[in-house]
Each structure stands twice: as structure tokens, then as C-alpha cells.
């Protein structure tokens, strides 16, 4: 379990260095998107239209925060189950997405795209939403405000704690970690 601090956007060599089980603290801008937003992004790509955000080197966080209370940059903001984004993720990875943050294991299709194009899947602690929100210093809705908690926001994070759950080499801590501790 190596530990790294990394800046976003991620460079290809950042992704290459990471192995399943590593702990990473992310600093920089990341984007939020859940299923509804993913569907829209993929539809835009299919229609050849411009996206509301860059993808190259970027990290998407699967989160639908609770409403922002006065005086705070964001409400509680822990990860949601990533599997719901599996049908859409490969297309975004193909367009340069280099990191995803969520919870739960990814499908074979996503893993294949991660290996081919160089992308890493991070797990954030599900249900540690208040703690994670403290590592988000600014948030701005940049697309689909009508989707509420499902809109796309740009988050500025500082030392946002994640664990490499699945790396670009097929390493998978869900599979290997569970095997290691099963008896």
C-alpha cells in the first residue's frame, strides 16, 4: 500500500504508476456526474457535440451531494455506487478520462477500456460523506442545474483521500483483498 499525493488533471505517467491498494490524496479540480449526467454526456459525444467540460486527464467523481448549507462550499459528498455508470464509462475513457471515483467494483467492459486507454478507478469511503466534504474547498455547478443533486459540478479538492481499487493493469483490490482475508 504505497501512498501518493497527486494533482489533477492526471498525467498518463500518474496512472501508470498506481497499483490497486495504493492510497492517494488528490488535489485540484475534479468533476461530479451520476447516471443522468453520464447519459447526457454520452449522447453529446454520439451526436458529435461539445461537452460542458474537458475530459483529457480529468477525474470524475460519482456523487450526488446533499444540499449546500449556508456558509459551506458543499453539503455532504460521499461516493455513490459506480456500477450504474458502467454502461457509459468506456466511451468517456476513450475520450481521455483518466480517473473515476466511486464505490463498488467495475464491470469487465470498464476494466478493458481502463487497460487500453490508461485510466484508474479510485474508491472513496462510502458513507464518509461529511469527512469527504471537508476536503472539497469550492464547488460550482457547470452543467444541467435542472438535475439538482445529479448536475455536473466542478469541485476543487485538497488532499481528497481515495484508494486505488482497480488499476490499469487489471489489478483489483476487491477481488484480491477479499481473497486475502477470506477463510
Amino acid at each position: 500500500m504505497a501512498e501518493y499525493s497527486m494533482k489533477t488533471p492526471l498525467r498518463p505517467e500518474d496512472v501508470d504508476r498506481l497499483r490497486a491498494g495504493d492510497a492517494v490524496k488528490l488535489t485540484g479540480d475534479i468533476y461530479t456526474a451520476r447516471d443522468a449526467a453520464h447519459k447526457r454526456l454520452v449522447d453529446l459525444i454520439k451526436d458529435g457535440k461539445t461537452l460542458p467540460m474537458p475530459l483529457e486527464g480529468q477525474v470524475i467523481y460519482y456523487v450526488g451531494p446533499s444540499p449546500t448549507p449556508p456558509g459551506k462550499p458543499i453539503g455532504s459528498a460521499g461516493p455513490t455506487t459506480s456500477g450504474r455508470m458502467d454502461p457509459y464509462a468506456p466511451i468517456l475513457i476513450e475520450r481521455g478520462l483518466r480517473g473515476m471515483i466511486g464505490k463498488g467494483e467495475r464491470s469487465a467492459g470498464v476494466v478493458e477500456a481502463m487497460q487500453k486507454h490508461g485510466c484508474v478507478y479510485f474508491a472513496a469511503t462510502g458513507g464518509a460523506a461529511a469527512l469527504l466534504s471537508k476536503r472539497i474547498v469550492a464547488a460550482e455547478v457547470i452543467a444541467y442545474p435542472e438535475l439538482g443533486a445529479e448536475s455536473i459540478s466542478r469541485l476543487r479538492v485538497e488532499n481528497f483521500p481515495v484508494i486505488v481499487a482497480q488499476d490499469r493493469y487489471g489489478g483489483n483490490i476487491y477481488r484480491d483483498g477479499q481473497k486475502q482475508y477470506a477463510r
Binding site: S66, G75, S76, A130, L132, I163
Partner: peptide, 27 residues
């Protein structure tokens, strides 16, 4: 070690949520 790190975060999270009156989980 990863498990310990996560449980530590969960406990810290509960303390933050309580002190700042924020939801423990966004869901």
C-alpha cells in the same frame, strides 16, 4: 491496513457530522 484506514475515516466522519450538524451520508 486499508480496512483500518477506512474504519478510521468512518469514525472521524461521525464526529464531523455530529459537530457540524451535517449528514453522515449524502444519501
Amino acid at each position: 491496513p486499508v480496512g483500518k484506514e477506512i474504519i478510521g475515516q468512518i469514525l472521524e466522519n461521525a464526529a464531523i457530522a455530529r459537530a457540524e450538524r451535517m449528514p453522515i451520508c449524502q444519501d
